[in-house]
Amino acid sequence: MPQRPSALFALADRNLPLLFPPATLARLTELVDIDPALTVTDFGDPALGERLAGTEFLITGWGCPVVTPTVLDGLPRLRGVLHTAGTVKALLDPEVWRRGVAVSTAAAANALPVAEYTLGVILLLGKDVLGLHDEYRATRAFPPGLTHRDIGNAGRRVGIIGASRIGRRVIELLRPFDFEVLLHDPYVTEAEARALGVRAVDLDTLLASSTIVSVHAPATPETRHLLDAARLALLPDGAALVNTARGSLVDTEALTKELVTGRIRAVLDVTEPEPLPAESPLFRLPNVLLTPHVAGSLGNELSRLGRTAVDELERLLTGRPLAYGVELAELARTA
């Protein structure tokens, strides 16, 4: 029997059982020689020297140390990095690509729960479930808002900022519903937007004409505080902002000032800073729902990320192209 390639886990050991439950781990160990009891969080550990020298594949994830040129020098046989999470921007030095190492990420698999969270939130916001819940709890009587003309999801206009993996998945999930969907993404043409079933508009138009806005753009220097005070002021009274992307895309101080007035609503799974200071008004405002960065893969959803990495490994070993490969040129404008 030919010798199996050598692989190594480089991630926090607490996640390993969820990422690689027994059936997935069995698949992995059939493909490569890997020690499930060894999870690397420090490439500088002297005890790893011989192990690293023979490693052909790194299975990485949350808790993986940065792969620097020095680390690569100790991995002369490295052929692939298979990441069981989303972005690899902060994890891999560009030298990884320059040395011809294949890189894959489970970002597409992680996009699904984020999009599902977003869909659920949009539907509930359209029915004003959060506001009506508070009123019902306070009065113990059916709120008069049940007949209010601004409540409901019939023909509601939803604005999507960013046709990222998650943004596109949200658009797909919204398709069966009776929404008009606007999209702002500087890299998407009007023809491409039509193919997605949405209407491409500039950012200011999207903000001024959408009653629910969901943020799915990557965090880059160009998108920092993309939604500043001036742009947040464009949102119509009663509009809602959903952010499951990164907190840095929204000016937190400006958003807090808007929310304190009660003029708009927000559902925030990410913030800047994260977590917010304990004294932040956002914890107390009735028009704000804060969740602790839970939209992405959690619990049993992590197994989907592990399966993705094993699928990608199988592709590499059988000479097929990666389904979710990451190219160095993409990093500047992706998450």
Rank of each mutant, 00 (worst) to 15 (best):
L8D: 06
F9N: 07
D13R: 15
L16F: 13
L16E: 08
P17F: 11
L18N: 14
P21G: 12
P21N: 12
P21T: 11
T29K: 15
E30Q: 14
E30N: 13
V32Q: 07
A37N: 11
V40G: 03
V40M: 02
F43Q: 08
G44P: 03
D45N: 14
A53V: 01
L58A: 06
W62K: 01
G63T: 04
V66R: 15
T68Y: 02
L72D: 02
D73T: 10
L75Q: 00
L75E: 00
P76M: 05
P76R: 02
R77I: 04
R77H: 06
L82C: 03
G86P: 00
D93H: 15
E95K: 06
W97P: 03
R98T: 08
V101R: 06
V101W: 06
A102E: 13
A106I: 07
A108W: 05
L112G: 00
V121S: 10
L123E: 12
L123F: 12
L124E: 11
L124N: 13
H133Y: 13
R137Y: 01
T139R: 10
F142H: 09
R149T: 09
I151F: 12
G152T: 09
S164N: 04
L173I: 08
R175G: 05
R175V: 01
F177T: 08
V181T: 14
V188F: 10
E190H: 15
L203G: 07
A208D: 02
V215I: 12
A217D: 01
A219Q: 00
T223K: 00
R224T: 02
H225A: 10
A229M: 07
P236R: 10
D237C: 03
G238T: 01
A239E: 02
A240K: 02
D251A: 11
T252E: 13
L259Q: 08
T261H: 01
I264Y: 07
D269F: 08
V270W: 04
T271I: 13
P273S: 10
E274C: 09
A278R: 14
E279G: 12
S280T: 14
S280C: 14
F283G: 13
L285V: 15
L289N: 10
L290M: 13
T291Y: 13
P292K: 12
P292Q: 13
L298W: 12
L316C: 05
T318F: 04
A323D: 14
V326E: 03
